[in-house]
Design a protein around this nucleic acid. Sequence first.
DNA 1: GCATATCCGGCAAGCGCTTTCCTTGCTACG
DNA 2: CGTAGCAAGGAAAGCGCTTGCCGGATATGC
Lengths: 345, 345
Amino acid sequence: MPPGTPRSPATLHDVAREAGVSLATASRSLNGSTRRVNEEYRARVVAAAERLGYIANFSAQAIAKGMSPTVALVVSDIADPYFSSIASGVMRGADESGLLVTMAVTERSAARELGIVKSLRGQRPRVLILTGSRFLDSAGEEEALTRELAAYEESGGRVVVVAQQSLPFDTVQMRNYEGARDLARALADRGNRRFAAITGSRSLLTSADRLQGFRDGLAESGIELPDELVVAGEFTRDGGYAAAGELLERGLDGVDVVFAVSDVMAIGTLSRLRDAGVDVPGRIGVAGFDDIATAADVTPALTTVRLPLVEMGRLALEMALREREDGERQVRTVGGAVLLRASTR
Amino acid sequence: MPPGTPRSPATLHDVAREAGVSLATASRSLNGSTRRVNEEYRARVVAAAERLGYIANFSAQAIAKGMSPTVALVVSDIADPYFSSIASGVMRGADESGLLVTMAVTERSAARELGIVKSLRGQRPRVLILTGSRFLDSAGEEEALTRELAAYEESGGRVVVVAQQSLPFDTVQMRNYEGARDLARALADRGNRRFAAITGSRSLLTSADRLQGFRDGLAESGIELPDELVVAGEFTRDGGYAAAGELLERGLDGVDVVFAVSDVMAIGTLSRLRDAGVDVPGRIGVAGFDDIATAADVTPALTTVRLPLVEMGRLALEMALREREDGERQVRTVGGAVLLRASTR
DNA sequence: GCATATCCGGCAAGCGCTTTCCTTGCTACG
DNA sequence: CGTAGCAAGGAAAGCGCTTGCCGGATATGC
C-alpha cells in the first residue's frame, strides 16, 4: 500500500475480530444496548477498541437506528450576540446529552430558512431548533416551512421554535410585549415624557410585538409615540446606526428616550448618537431589549430588558428531548426583567 | 396504521419505484454522478422526488461514500465574538460549498478539546477546523490531540487549525507578535510612556505572543513593561474585568495605557475602569487586540489591532477544501492593522 | 430428574445509499 | 452486412452498524 493511501479507521468489525467475538457482541459492549453482555467479553471488546482507536461511525449508527444523534440548530446570524448566546445554551445542553450540534445560518431570509430546513432534514436529526423571528409578510414561505416541519415531526423528529409564537410547534416564547410595556412604564415613571423608537422591519414579529408593548406601556401614562418618530431599519447594529441617523435628521428636539427594539440596534443607535456628538443620557436616553453581554459594557451602560438567552437555548433543547406527554404542544414562556442602567435617566 | 406512528420519509427506493426506474438510475439522477442519465428518465425521477418530498439521507450517503459532507468546527466559546465571527466565516463558506457545519465548544479546556475531536471524528467529516489558542503547558493533551488529528488526516480528512502555529497541520495564522509590536510602536509614537498589560493565562500561546510583541515594540523606544504591571486573568470579559481590578489595586499612577491582549478582555477592563470612575482616555488609555464588532461601539471606541476574523474562518475552509498539492503543509498568515481610536491618546 | 424459564453469543437481515459490473440496444466504420 | 465500440439502465454487492431471532448452556420448579 503506497503511503498516503487513506487508511480507513477501524470498524466495529475489526474490533470484533481483534477481540474474538461476534459483531453483535462488540456492538452491544461498546455502543450500549438493552441487553447485557458478560463482563469478561465486554472487557475484551473495550480493550480491543482502545487498542485499535476505534470510534463508532455516527452515520452508520444513524442509518441503522433511523435517526442521528444530532440536533440541528437554525439561527439568523451566528455573529449576532443574541443568537450566539442562545446557541451557546443549546450546545451546552447538547454536550450533556451526548448530541452533536449542526448549525446553519439563514441570514434573515425566509427563503433561505426553508432551504436550510430541507437540507438539514437530510441529516435526520433528532431535534430541530429554529430561532429567529418570523416575518409577517412571508406567508408563502411560512406555510411551506410549516409543512416541512410537520413532515419532519411526522417522521419522528422534534421541532422547537424559539421566540416565534406563530408556528404550531413546541415553543420557547418570550414576553416581548410585556417586557417592552414594563420598560415603557419604568421609563415613564422616571419622568421621561417624549419618546422615539427604532424598530426592525415592520413585518418582523418580534420587533412589532416589542414596539406595540412599548406603545401601550406609554399609553398608560397618557403618552403617545408619534409615528414620525418611529423609524424602521435592519435588525442589526448597522440598521440601528442608520435608523438613528434618520431620526437625527427628523429632529430629536425634546425627545427624552429612544427605544430600540433590540440591544444590537440600540448599540448602533448609541454609536450614531456618539458620532453626532449627542450626549447620552444627558441630552437623550437610549434603551434596548435583550440584555446581550455587551449591553452592560457599553458606555453609558444600556438600559434594557433582560432575557435569559443562554437558558432559553438550553430550555429549547430540554423541551425537545422530553417525551411528549400527550401530543400536546408545549409552550414555555420566559419573562424579561427591566434593567435601568446609565443610558437613561 | 395508528396516527402518530412515525411515517418515515420517502427513500430513494420509493422515488425509484414511483418513477418506474431502478435505484441506480434514481441515484444518478438526483445525487450527481459521473455518469449521465437520459433526460427523459432524469425528469421523471426529479418529478417523482418532488412529489414525494424526497430528501436524501445524508447518513446513508456518508456511509456509502465513506465520508460525510460536513465540516466540523471546534471553538472555545461560541458566545465569544471572536469565535462567533470566525464561525460566521466558516459557515458562510460551508453553505456555498453545500456542506453542513457541526460545531462543538471546548470551554477552553484541552481535555475537552481532545474528547470533542474524538467524538467529532465519529461523524467522518470531510474537514475539521480547530480554533482557539493552544496551551503551552498541556503537552500531554497536545500530543494526544496531534495523534488523533494525524490519524484523522490519514483516513482522508483534512484539518485546518486557526491561530495555533504549534500544531503540524494546515494553519491560518495571525501575526500576533507583529500586530502587538506595531501597536506598541504606534502608542509610543503618540507619546505614551508608561504601560501596563492584561494577559490571558501565561500558558496561552496567543496571549504570550501578543504580550511579547508588545514588550518588544515598547523596547524599541526604550520603554520597559514592568512585570508588576502585567497581570494575568481568564481570557474572557470577566477575566479582563478582574485583572483590571487587580491592576487598580497595585496602583496605576502615571500609567498612560493599559494593553489587554484581546478586545474581550479590553472591554472588561474598560468596564472596570468605568466602575472605578477612572476617565478613559483622560486619565488612562486602553488598547485591545482583534477588533471584534463591538470594539468600535464601546465608548470610548477601542484602540486595537484589526484581524479579519470572518475572512479567517472562510480562508480556513477554503484551505481545507483545496486539493493538497504535494503533501506540503500550508500556512497562510493574516496580518493585523493597528486601529487607533478614542480609547487611547 | 425432567420440563420450563432465563441468559447471552452469534447469525443474518436489514437501514438508505453509491458504485461496480453486467447487459442491452445503438451507432459507427470497414 | 458484420463487428467493434459506446452509451446508459439495472442488478447486486457493499458501506458500518443495530437488532430480531435462534439455540446452547445454565438456573429454577415440581
